[in-house]
Amino acid sequence: MIELDFCVITFYSTHLALQFEKLIKGSGLRVKLIPVPRKISSSCGIAGRISPQDLTVVRKICQEKGLAYESVYRIFNDQTKQPELVE
């Protein structure tokens, strides 16, 4: 698989990250739980990794279901580029 840019969604708790995975998977979208990338934060929680194309839908699902997330970052395949805070 060719590594592409991806979005990382961070949460205030591990439990919310797990709920997020369940919710997004249930909607038929691809999501993978990963440790919060070191470049984003020195904290050691769990984050959700999704494809940038799915971001709009994912946002909408979270809003509808009342699932609060902390931030959304875009991580570039090009390692020299710093992660970008989307929201």
């Binding site: 591990t14 797990l18 739980l33 440790p35 020195s42 050691c44 769990i46």
Partner: peptide, 23 residues
């Protein structure tokens, strides 16, 4: 340890919970 986030409990947790072997 601050740079790498080394953690004993986190290592076992991540391996079990999200199958991530990093820690």
């Amino acid at each position: 340890a601050q740079r790498s986030r080394l953690c004993m409990a986190g290592g076992v947790r991540d391996l079990y919970l999200i199958k991530d072997p990093h820690l």
